[in-house]
Amino acid sequence: MIEALALGKSFGAVKAVDGVSFTAHDGQITGLLGPNGAGKTTTLRMIGTLVSIGAGQARVDGIDVSARPKDALQACGFLSDARGLYTRMTARENIRYYAELRGIDPARSESAINRYADWLDMRALLDRRTDGFSQGERMKVAITRALVHEPPNVILDEPTNGLDVMSTRALRELIRRLRAEGRTVLFSSHVMQEVAALCDRIVIIAQGRVTAAGTPADILSAGGKDNLEDAFVSLAGIDAAHGGEAVA
């Protein structure tokens, strides 16, 4: 379970995140939806200890992220929007490096690698150097690397950015499997359809604040619209004239 309790963060005079609260439950997929620059990534980075928490609290399985960052990270798998791989090393070596850094014994990490490779259809990639991998191939390696320690909580920052249809489908399938295993999945996106297709709960963020939260049905009624896209535009406070790109 991941909890954000009135999280806040300012960069200079800019309030990037301003009192964001939500809970992502076990066995559910929670989507953070918002236009670019709404504060989604900063919120996730605070939960992932990459950015210090300006105000409020973040908890992962009840662990206060600020007080015990290493324990919180141990309970998390985090796919950030930076997905750089070591191009002189094979996919397997890239993943193993993270397993070793987390102190996972080789037998356990091998079985995790093989499991995710089957799910993501990347067995053939495992022993190739990652130099020249496509965006989709890089994402597959990066997500396996983030999940190699089989964390109960999974955070994905804009996971489908730049992916083709096949890779996006493989990723969605993976996210559903993670939910089926009872894990907490929290992911951010600015793509309405993606969130609608996957999420059990949606948290809409605009200008650093939560403007609506709930099941897709709750969002529809809160927005007073009959489709999610219109509801999102209305709830995110996006003016149709300049906010169109946010719901592409």
């Binding site: 990459l50 324990d71 990270l73 950030s80 930076a82 750089g84 791989l85 850094l101 987390r102 983030a146």
Partner: peptide, 16 residues
């Protein structure tokens, strides 16, 4: 180099 290739951020997400 680690930062430029985008591998620094994921590296720091390990509890090390």
């Amino acid at each position: 180099g680690e930062r430029e290739r985008g591998s620094l951020e994921p590296l720091l997400l390990n509890p090390v």
